[in-house]
């Protein structure tokens, strides 16, 4: 057999070879000031919640250290609450509980949302209609009502139970967004090529479709986390929070119940409110600055 000469491709130009170092450099250059500001804020909040108690804690969170609604002083910088407990210590523990609830609820909601959305988008057809039908039903039910009913039904709750309740009611938006993405990625040709390599459907979804949505899923997680924290605060304020823990919402619940506003004990309700605002603000800022990195269209605006 005579062969036809096939032109060998010349080695590609050096520009195509990007060193790992320069890739890191161009990545860090894409991170904006917004990212550094929000990341620093999140780090400070984490430090405050998880390591703070070791430095500034005044005993256990439920330990009574003074009288009712003692004003801030040199020893107790945020004063005491309605039981004479240290507000500052409670704030650190409460922030921790709120963060834990947010992360667990976010993980649960994101996982359910991704599984539902990925499956619906990948298969399309009847499966898609069924799963999206369920999703739409869950969306239309007012979630706060479900949350209240679930909280009442469960009775005594740990912070993890609390997180589960929030997680299983807040996945639908993630499911819908992931569905749209996965139905477009599944039409890329590499998915068909992987099928021609004998890959099973589950492995196609996992290895060929899912990687394209990782950045997206991560951002959905951050949003779910934030809204999980806020939902916990809302529930706890209504008195439906975890039974044996302190959270930011529970602090607000107590201060409402013991009329701190009327008595002018601002140190009981302002700190948890400010902390909630700070957490939500820094996480939203982080999410939008990461969006810029993942989504090149938003860069340089």
């Amino acid at each position: 057999m005579s062969g036809i000469p096939v032109t060998m491709d010349s080695p590609p130009p050096p520009a195509a070879k990007q060193s790992a170092q320069s890739r890191v450099r161009s990545f860090t250059r894409m991170l904006s000031t917004r990212f550094y500001v929000s990341a620093t804020m999140v780090a400070m909040i984490l430090f405050f919640a998880f390591l703070g108690p070791f430095f500034w804690g005044v005993g256990e969170p439920k330990q009574i250290v003074g009288g009712l609604y003692e004003a801030p002083s040199r020893e107790l910088i945020l004063g005491t609450d309605n039981f004479g407990r240290d507000v500052f210590t409670q704030l650190m523990h409460g922030t921790r509980s709120s963060l834990v609830i947010g992360v667990v609820a976010g993980l649960i909601a994101t996982t359910i949302g991704v599984v539902m959305g990925l499956t619906a988008g990948y298969f399309g057809g009847v499966i898609d209609e069924m799963l999206m039908g369920i999703t739409n039903v869950v969306i239309t039910i007012p979630s706060i009502v479900v949350l209240i009913l679930l909280s009442i039904a469960v009775g005594t709750k740990s912070i993890v139970t609390m997180a589960i309740i929030i997680g299983v009611t807040s996945w639908p938006w993630t499911a819908r967004a992931v569905r749209a993405q996965s139905s477009s990625v599944r039409n890329r040709e590499h998915v068909d090529l992987a099928r021609l390599s004998g890959a099973s459907t589950v492995s196609l979804m996992f290895w060929e479709v899912l990687p394209y949505m990782l950045s997206y899923i991560f951002m959905a997680f951050v949003l779910q986390l934030t809204s999980g924290i806020l939902q916990e605060a809302a529930l706890s304020m209504l008195g439906l929070g975890p039974s044996n823990a302190v959270s930011l919402g529970i602090m607000l619940h107590w201060s409402l119940l013991w009329e701190s506003v009327r008595t002018g004990a601002w140190w009981a309700f302002i700190p948890p409110t400010v902390m909630l605002t700070l957490i939500a603000f820094s996480l939203f800022l982080l999410q939008s600055s990461l969006d810029e990195v993942f989504n090149p269209r938003l860069r340089g605006r």
Partner: peptide, 25 residues
């Protein structure tokens, strides 16, 4: 017959080749 194509690819326009831009191909 066999018609020869060009090898290589169009240059990266952030760092275009020196001299005649077509010279690498």
């Amino acid at each position: 017959i066999t018609i020869k194509g060009l090898s290589g690819q169009s240059p990266d326009m952030q760092t275009p080749p020196s001299g005649c831009r077509f010279h690498p191909r």
